[in-house]
Design a binder for these strands. Structure first.
Lengths: 209, 209
DNA sequence: TCATTCGATGCACGTCGTGCATCTATGCAC
DNA sequence: GTGCATAGATGCACGACGTGCATCGAATGA
């Protein structure tokens, strides 16, 4: 998707990158991220140990790379949503598009998420990947609503939208058990509810003691 | 705050912990987190290298420890807010209380945040610390609004509230320059605006092309 | 074809993080 | 106060991580 008709060099690079990522996820799924060594990963991907660091700066980054790519795709998709859609609507639609595309690619995206979710050591990396897109999304939102320089809305909206997506996705994954991929329909429903909550206002009165 | 009249053992432990944390922050502020070695930190805190790992599992965790404590305090404070306050109101008040207490302790909390903000390698750790409080906050919210088991509101609200706080704090820190602590009044104002935005509903129409 | 460039690799080194054994100060019972 | 049990501090060894540097070979373009 980022590489169409490039030279052999570029094609080889993206192939290697994918090989490393897949190897990392496969091994992590089998043995647990902590127990997998870089040596194993590089052997599986058939590259030298040193080469690994030409692509990723850590094991964790490699495992999370797929998800990070999806986040980036989400932001890109948001950018091209028609102006007729409100911000939250556009975010919603963008999420659906990425979701469809990812599920079309097979279950790899999902299994990667399952691995990530099960491993505490990946949480920081995943959150960092998400945060990395936050500023990009904020910028896109600022353009879309034509916000003033000092308007806090874009950044706030970006952060909250991504947080909402994360929670929704997380709750959905929670329903997954033993490699059984839960219904995509459920995830759509979750997104729907989350977005509704956001647009309706988040506050609630406290219940009496 | 977590240790009142405990035995000498406990007191020494908390003192050591604080010494490590302070040493880590001080050195990180001077040389940059990446360039500081554990050896330096342990020398500064006057402990053995091995002992460090009895308290923290990494340099980064030590630096972020202070902020992590404030997050925990925030959640604790929220728990004890009166039921007469709505969820967002209670969150707001809790934030103000923690803010007051932290600023009363001097500028240490702020300088720590400044260090953290300037160092990309600390972002994952900080986000992880924040995420760690998310479930605790979600639970507190669930109690407060007496939510049903399958109600997504508590987790969503917790995630979004923390995201909102993070962004607000971040924007405020951005105005800080060269060790000059920006006005706390400004931070209060930022919180006010953020919470208003959240309760009012986050959506916005897109501007025409 | 030839020179250039860029990525892959090997090597060396410093740092990190942990398991294990040991030593010491603390807490406790008497 | 004495002595025991325990928890925390320390030392040691080791495997893994991450990076700078030099080299080699394949891909590119003139």
């Amino acid at each position: 998707m980022e590489n169409e008709a490039a030279g052999r060099r570029e094609r080889k690079k993206t192939a290697t990158r994918a090989a490393i990522r897949d190897a990392a996820i496969r091994l992590a799924l089998r043995d647990g991220v902590e127990r997998v060594t870089l040596e194993q990963i590089t052997a599986e991907a058939d590259i030298a140990l040193r080469t690994f660091f030409n692509y990723f700066s850590s094991k964790e980054e490699a495992v999370v790379a797929g998800a990070a790519g999806d986040f980036r795709a989400f932001v890109a998709e948001f950018r091209v949503r028609p102006r007729s859609e409100s911000v939250l609507r556009a975010l919603h639609e963008a999420a659906l598009v990425v979701l469809d595309r990812a599920s079309g690619d097979g279950q790899d995206h999902i299994t990667a998420l399952v691995v990530i979710r099960g491993e505490r050591s990946l949480v920081p990396q995943l959150l960092a990947a998400l945060a990395a897109q936050e500023s990009a999304l904020a910028e896109a939102i600022a353009e879309r609503v034509d916000a003033a320089e000092d308007d806090g809305y874009p950044r706030l909206c970006a952060a909250i939208a991504l947080a909402g997506l994360r929670v929704t996705l997380d709750q959905w994954l929670e329903t997954a058990r033993e490699g059984v991929v839960p219904s995509l329909r459920d995830l759509r429903g979750g997104l729907e509810r989350t977005l509704t909550e956001l647009s309706g206002g988040l506050d609630r009165p406290s219940a009496p003691e």
